[in-house]
Design a protein around this nucleic acid. Structure first.
Lengths: 283, 283
DNA sequence: CCGGGCAGGTTGTCTAGCCATCTTTGGTGA
DNA sequence: TCACCAAAGATGGCTAGACAACCTGCCCGG
């Protein structure tokens, strides 16, 4: 009864169906603002139970594709975009997904004992071996980002074995069995210093978009800590969040001189009021 | 058998249990890096079925509190932070949650026909009435942000009725029955212009952190479009994402002169490889 | 013509259970 | 001592059904 039978090595049904529905929305059926078929409808159509369909719709909802209100049919919000967790981690994966040619110029790769800051960020003892790699990343030849990544020893050992100009460290690490599960990003703006200006070909004091990232493996071990500085005129971040899932945080720097501030976090919402009526279902 | 019986108006069981487990983690039991009790354990302990516990753990997982791998017990990743969807939307809610005193200085509030850009952002016809409000937001008296928000007529009418120095427009709107469901944020860095410099008391060309946001009601109608510019030395964004839920996007500006670029989106991940062994369960 | 109320449809919550797949552990045999 | 294997334990995926809460549209009465 499955619309498209699945082989043994394929996605679980609920993901498969989610992909199919997302593809449909991308193709315009149903159009944004329109209603989705009911859960029972979809369950029958795909030959699965309502529980499985609810898993599917939960996925689409977290992704911001659809909205739901108890009692009313689900609404299509917008067409889906590109998708991949890897794109958040990997400059190369992102660039390729956009059809641009990523590149990397190795500036430095050093192996040294961890200082107290690095030790805390990577959750290793002070003095443990860490690897610090600095690279300039390019898009179609033009430098757009400076990447300073710190790895713990068990990862850095692998990284050091790669070619310096290896396109995607992330991809190579995954192939080597190092996996990524959780990442925490801190995004702010800084003025370009003299050294960074030279690497990026900019004037000093130009605004840069800085992303600091800590990535963790499924077992909780930190895999990398990175400080990436983007040309502000070539890149921006977007964050999508819903009342059901908010993963963004805005954090103030303590007293305008500080270093590691307290945090403003955006997680889930408990309360949600509903609109009076969905008249004018937009467009 | 419920550890804490629920009354008729309380949260659903799975949210209630999630809150209790999160509180426990905040208090240090289990500590980060340690294991959570098994699903069956928790089900028995809270007197619910395993399905309900799985709903609970799904919540905590999306929030980045715990990680899971098939076959292994769930791991506690970190202590939970403050939580509220409102804090992503509302400067005031965020400031108060942090114990600081938010303020607002009304610069301008105009009512005018929508231009083509505004019309698209708010999903109204060109020429429809929109309200544009400019305010300087302060933290304990010091200006930290310039807020330029555009509202469609049905929301702007309410906003115009508020006092200009109303602390939290968002909160007042919710009280008036306008609810928020989805928000899309675009974050980048720009150099401070002359006008903005005067409003914020900065030198021109200082880096600013810019957040552009479109907020949508549960029925899909846009509620507001905002351009907020923060002092880069007083605020930063953090984004949390997991392999199961990634809501961040990095989007390149097309040719270094552009206005509305294509999008690099970070949504869900389909594939996930697993680590070899979780030895050294960190700390 | 307008408004209220009711019935049916739809999503939200929860249960009980089944099997698959993977991890961990402990024991056995070389 | 060490490698391998089997069993137990855990999570992932899925089903079928029940009831609650809520929304919508229709019908009917005023």
């Amino acid at each position: 009864m499955l619309a498209t039978p699945r082989g043994p090595h394929e996605l679980p049904a609920y993901r498969h169906i989610a992909a199919e529905i997302a593809a449909g929305i991308r193709a315009g059926t149903p159009a944004p603002g329109k209603q989705l078929p009911s859960e029972s409808d979809l369950a029958t159509r795909y030959g699965v139970s309502r529980g499985t369909i609810r898993q599917t719709l939960g996925l689409l909802q977290v992704d911001g594709l659809i909205a739901s209100r108890q009692g009313a049919r689900r609404l299509v919000l917008s067409a889906p975009r590109l998708q991949s967790f890897a794109e958040l981690m990997s400059f190369s994966a992102w660039a390729r997904a956009r059809g641009e040619q990523p590149g990397a110029l190795l500036v430095e790769l050093v192996r040294r004992p961890a200082g107290p800051l690095e030790a805390e960020r990577l959750d290793v003892p002070v003095g443990a071996v860490v690897y610090v790699m600095t690279r300039v990343r390019t898009l179609s030849g033009a430098p757009v980002m400076i990447e300073r990544t710190t790895y713990p020893e068990w990862v850095g050992r692998l990284v050091a074995a790669f070619d310096g100009e290896t396109e995607s460290i992330t991809q190579r690490l995954e192939e080597a069995g190092v996996s990524f599960a959780v990442a925490e990003h801190t995004i702010d703006a800084i003025a370009c210093g003299v050294a960074d200006a030279r690497l990026l070909g900019l004037q000093p004091r130009t605004p840069l978009l800085r992303e600091r990232r800590r990535t963790t493996a499924p077992d909780g071990r930190p895999v990398e800590w990175s400080d990436d500085r983007y040309r502000a005129d070539s890149v921006a971040f977007t964050v999508h969040n819903t009342v059901a899932t908010a993963n963004l945080t805005l954090l103030p720097l303590p007293a305008r001189n500080g270093d590691e501030p307290a945090v403003r976090t955006m997680r889930r919402q408990t309360g949600l009021t509903h609109p009076r009526r969905p008249d004018e279902p937009h467009s």
